[in-house]
Design a protein around this nucleic acid. Structure first.
Lengths: 191, 191
DNA sequence: TCAGCCATGTAATGGGTTACATGATTGA
DNA sequence: TCAATCATGTAACCCATTACATGGCTGA
């Protein structure tokens, strides 16, 4: 029985640290955080439901990693602003230093179908491939828009670095769908 | 209230069809299927625990999509061979025709950390990046080995197409890690 | 008029992971 | 000797999704 070290992260899931980390960019409400996460983390880490963002925030408060402040509003519903605490920042830094590199996982139901392409009608497969190309082009456009929002200059350095990963991969995907379409059409011509 | 069509897939998750689809390449035991899935689907769809493969197979039998045959062995433990049924094949084809293109999701805890790189020590970040490069190179080597196993010629067409996706993306990742390392070192030099 | 945005949550379900259990054979 | 392989499963847990609930304001 190996003795556990006095819980540096208490076995919290990476998603908790993801939400905590977003708070380092400034205080935010659950609603705002959810929107922010969908513009950023959703492309390479996770796409949480709104309700999950809210429950993660409650957990952060329970752990003492964040504080809440009720803000009353006239024209909009009241909201709760969450702010990271010094304890939360220490926990985040400790996690960043200690967590190592967990492998990336990819889940593409589309590629699964392509692998079973021999069982599909060529029409459906081609339609799916066209749709995959459209999605890749759209996703690429979204990321290029993010890139423009950053403007010129090197900062913010790290978010830019992550964005460059997304851009490279979406260009790769787009190129692949185009090559795949050519191959499908060539194959259809040969019967 | 839109009326649902008389359950063409009974709301089964894609993972069930993934296992079912692997059975179209031939009968197999849970143990063999698990190994096969880890050599193939794990790179772009899912990496199930052994126990999940077994439970999916039991579900397929319960649904009438597969049959089991107990096979006694002398030198090895007995095993159960699973075979897809005509009903199972119809269900699989129906799913392939009807399921459309669900978006790909990527989960990279590493990229999450890079995004918060400003909070990390440069040493840890660089070590993580080196590790990420090593993993990408290793993964690429695994896929290139799969490619060699296929040999020359166009067949099997669809598995090859999926493999080419994996190869392209791992080359992109490898290239990105190398560029990122250069940028990190350049930045460290400038302080 | 009416969809969409702002804003926060509860409840139920289940897919997927981790840990545990068993035990013989093979090869380094 | 000892790790790895072959082979199948149970039990517990929990992250994550889906559905549901509420309701005022804004802009087309």
């Amino acid at each position: 029985m190996p003795r556990r070290p006095a819980q540096p992260d208490a076995g919290l899931p990476a998603t908790t640290f993801a939400v905590l980390g977003m708070l380092t960019f400034g205080e935010a409400s659950g609603y705002e955080l959810h929107k922010l996460i969908h513009r950023t983390l959703s492309h390479f880490f996770f796409r949480p439901a709104q309700s999950q963002v809210y429950s993660e925030l409650r957990r952060l408060v329970r752990l003492g990693f964040a504080t809440v402040q009720e803000v009353e509003q006239q024209l909009r519903p009241d909201k709760r602003l969450y702010r990271i605490t010094p304890l939360g920042e220490r926990a985040l830094r400790a996690w960043l230093e200690s967590s190592g590199v967990e492998p990336e996982t990819v889940r593409s139901p589309f590629l699964l179908k392509v692998g079973f392409g021999a069982l599909m009608s060529p029409e459906t497969l081609r339609a799916d491939m066209l749709e995959a190309r459209r999605v890749a082009a759209e996703e690429l456009a979204v990321l290029e828009e993010l890139e423009e929002e950053f403007g010129e200059g090197p900062d913010p350095f790290f978010p830019r670095l992550v964005l460059s990963y997304g851009l490279a991969h979406n260009r790769t995907t787009l190129h692949w769908t185009e090559e795949a379409l050519k191959q499908l059409d060539k194959r259809a011509g040969e019967h």
